[in-house]
Simulated assay, not measured.
Amino acid sequence: MKKSILVLFFCTLFSFAQETTVTDSVAEKNVITKIILLRHAEKEKDGSKDPKLSKQGMLRAEKLNFMLSDFSIDKLFSTAYIRTQKTLGAISQSRNITISNYEARDKNFAEQLVRNEMGKTIIVAGHSNTIPALVNVLIKEDKYKDLSEEEYGKLWILTFSNEELIDCSLFNF
């Protein structure tokens, strides 16, 4: 009788030890990734293919830097255009983070973004027709349409737990 109680005790103890190990492993693997996506700020209407930001656009870029000052930003991505680079310029300078270029229409970029940047908070600046499309790919839903030429103040924050989307929030700024 004592032997069977002892065996039962050790089996129960072993079972609890296994449960704790499994629970701890899951907790250790819960990696949160935040991706902030936005269109570049207002551009000058000079007729060129690569215009600079207007005065209003420069103010919006500064506002963005202020708005995100409480976020710990790890990486910045931008298309190679002046307007997208300058939109992230204030953040880049204030935090000493280099802006990495990406090709807006590269389907692999969207697929690899969450996986390659797991555990980080990143910002992606693009265009009126590419950022909503990128959001759609990341949320795996055709929810957002291209922005109008006059829309500059939309910002999406996507939160992933491991590689699974847990929140998609849209803000106006």
Rank of each mutant, 00 (worst) to 15 (best):
G47I: 11
P132E: 08
A104Y: 11
R60T: 00
P132I: 09
S128W: 10
V135T: 15
G47A: 12
L134V: 12
I97C: 02
I82A: 12
A125H: 09
L113N: 08
A110C: 04
N65D: 06
S100Q: 06
Q85Y: 15
Y102F: 15
P51I: 07
Q93M: 04
K75M: 11
K120N: 10
V137R: 13
N116G: 00
R115N: 03
E117W: 10
P51K: 07
L64Y: 05
M67P: 00
L76M: 11
F71A: 12
S72C: 08
E103A: 05
E62P: 04
S128Y: 10
L76T: 08
A104H: 12
H127A: 14
D74F: 00
N136K: 11
N108D: 04
K55D: 12
S69W: 05
K107D: 15
L88G: 15
A110I: 05
K86C: 14
G119E: 03
I73M: 04
D106T: 07
G119A: 05
A110F: 05
Q85R: 15
T84C: 15
L138N: 09
R105A: 10
A61C: 01
L64C: 06
A133G: 13
L53E: 00
R105K: 14
S92P: 00
I131A: 12
P51M: 08
A61V: 00
A80C: 06
T87R: 12
D46A: 06
N129V: 06
K63V: 08
F109K: 02
D46M: 07
N65K: 07
P132V: 08
A110N: 05
E103T: 07
D50M: 10
I91G: 02
G57K: 00
F109V: 03
I91Q: 01
E111D: 08
Q56T: 05
A61P: 01
L68Y: 10
A104W: 08
I82C: 07
M67A: 03
F109H: 02
S128P: 10
R60I: 03
F77M: 00
S72N: 14
G57I: 02
I97F: 03
M58R: 03
F66N: 14
L68D: 09
A61D: 02
G47R: 12
L88T: 13
L76P: 07
D46P: 05
V124K: 04
F66Q: 15
M67F: 04
E62H: 07
R60A: 05
N116I: 03
I73A: 00
L134F: 09
I97A: 00
L88A: 15
G126A: 15
